[in-house]
Write a protein that binds this DNA or RNA. Structure first.
Lengths: 346, 346
DNA sequence: TTTAGCACTCGATTAGCTTGAGTGCTAATA
DNA sequence: TATTAGCACTCAAGCTAATCGAGTGCTAAA
């Protein structure tokens, strides 16, 4: 597949670079003039015809220039693109934006990261919040609210905090409650939320029954607050950025994209797909599973805290995207975020 | 101002009703045919010319029909519109949607209400979350996370729960911490968050100093978690609904509207404006302060818990809106929501 | 193998024409 | 006096034809 002649590579690259900027089909003459290839437009024309036949370029109509196909972009990303380092100003800008305040809550950090990502790329940022299910149990507390209600506070090792109001079984005295909570904290410490399955809970339940003779209902709280398949939150930034792109001058496209944005479940599946990979993943056009973004590219990367993968972030833009810039930025941001998150006393 | 002849009223109403459905300028013939006024188109033409001169109607261009002006809609809303009761099916549908699960957390209820509101009106719903500042302090707790960090949990009487991670002054022993918390709970109980001003905190600080000789830093937590002017959250529902309206076939308008949607601060100010009023408030077109929604109507109402005003909800659609339906729905939803929220053990 | 040259294609733009919904005005009518 | 019928007029929208020009493919010469 990497078997394109040097000349074809140069031309393909020229077409992509030009099209990325102009959003207009690129003609042979433009390539001949602008990119120091030292060939006449006629020759380039022939090469471009070849590239089209091979599937790297497309022609909107007979008498127009060429635009890159998904396959063309793919080749560009895999073989032609030069990784670009951010300038130190850009880096500084990102750091500044991200550090506006000393923030400890992970959710706010992530919300902020989405903002930064969209601002610095001018595309739309999607960030999947920490996957609650995969975090490890750190501690829980129950604060009594009234006779019959309590507030469960659940804290994971990744700094995720979850509240849930529950009904308390009337027969629990404060000290019994305390005992239950202590017992659970002891037993569950370090397990991932996934591991705290119903069966484990049932087991503990039996155990506790014997020891403390506490009402079964006491356990509904944990089940309730854990089992409830919590949708992973996806934070969006710069959703309107994409409206600046000429490919979205049609309201129909805008609608289909924005209704996707409204469906968190779909978004999180979209991001989850890429979440195994170590590196930055680029999904170009129809490589994406969802119809609605068949004309978009989604660049994703995962962020983590002390080597434990937390979630995925992505940039969504038109396939005609500034690939190297975006990849550079997302790379830098992920690294920096990992650093922040892993700093012990952040 | 209510001094329109009966005939003019009928005609104005006919124009508005028709335009609301068709989104096309309404001609004299259409009015004569469809609305049993018993007058010829010529007469109606004359009346419509009068109405235009008076500012209730507008003409996009000479040879087109008339469309209502903001003033026309205003008159309609104030004098001509018949309040429409929802059918019992509609009511049932709303109840079902809202009650999908037994939900206790107020935030989720509100999020859900936004969904319901947008689904049943087909416009965009904005709901301002509970105004933290105006809620009354109920209790606070501090859960130690590590040596140096603690989690402040703050609960208001309106069921709002707020977490914040803070740095603990190293010199506090658990029991000292406990004492401080108890003292604060005692002192602050029942005050609104607004009332817990810095000066009160300072006062308490002096007080505590004397009694417990506890480090000043212990107080940073409260200040930090309260003073931080927490932006009121605004929840959106059905943002894409508005894209179905023909008045938004132009991407420019979509962009300006959606970038407004991204700015929570602006949205909350928008809703706050109407938040004194008891009743449903209708802001038509240019009556709205923000340029971006000069072609929209915002219908708002406030919801409360046991007569304490919590927040505002609104419906945003084109000025050509089904006023009576929207007002009926928002009225019903607010009443119902108030009922749910005020039920003691919800 | 490359290039110059040329005929050809086809979207985009413009201008002119037609259509039709709707108006305003006037004169006739109830 | 209020209403209506009739008619000339207006103007956006839609259609067609003509023009323009960027860009192509092909051919023949270098």
């Amino acid at each position: 597949m990497g078997s394109l002649s040097e000349r074809k590579k140069k031309i393909l690259k020229a077409v992509i670079v030009n099209y990325t900027q102009s959003a207009e089909p690129v003609g042979s003459r433009t390539v001949a003039r602008g990119y120091r290839i030292g060939l006449s437009s006629a020759t380039i024309r022939n090469e471009m015809a070849d590239l089209e036949e091979m599937g790297y370029l497309e022609q909107p109509h007979t008498s127009a220039g060429r635009i890159p196909s998904d396959k063309g972009y793919r080749y560009y990303v895999d073989h032609l693109m030069e990784g670009v380092q951010l300038t130190s100003e850009e880096k500084k800008a990102i750091k500044n934006l991200l550090n506006a305040e000393k923030i400890r809550e992970i959710e706010k950090i992530i919300l902020n990261a989405a903002r930064v990502l969209s601002l610095s790329t001018n595309y739309t940022a999607l960030i999947m919040g920490p996957q609650f299910q995969k975090a490890a149990f750190k501690q829980m507390r129950i604060l009594p609210l009234s006779e019959k209600q309590g507030l469960v506070v659940l804290i994971t090792d990744t700094g995720f905090i979850k509240n849930k109001i529950i009904d308390l079984p009337y027969s629990l005295t404060p000290s019994e409650l305390h005992q239950v909570v202590n017992y659970l904290n002891h037993k569950l410490y370090g397990l991932t939320i996934d591991q705290v399955t119903t069966s484990l809970i049932n087991e503990l339940k039996r155990d506790l029954f014997r020891r403390l003779e506490i009402l079964e209902q006491a356990f509904l709280l944990l089940e309730e607050s854990l089992k409830e398949e919590e949708q992973v939150r996806v934070y969006l930034g710069g959703t309107t950025n994409i409206l600046n792109q000429p490919e979205f001058k049609d309201v129909e496209k805008v609608r289909s994209l924005f209704s996707l944005f409204e469906q968190e479940a779909l978004l999180s599946r979209l991001l989850e797909n890429s979440s195994d990979a170590e590196q930055v993943v680029v999904n170009i056009g129809r490589e994406n599973k969802l119809q609605d973004i068949h004309e978009c590219t989604l660049v994703t990367a995962t962020y983590s805290i002390q080597d434990k993968m937390l979630g995925t972030m992505g940039i969504l833009g038109p396939t005609r995207m500034e690939y190297c810039r975006v990849i550079g930025i997302i790379n830098y941001l992920v690294d920096y975020l990992n650093l922040i998150l892993s700093t012990p006393n952040r």
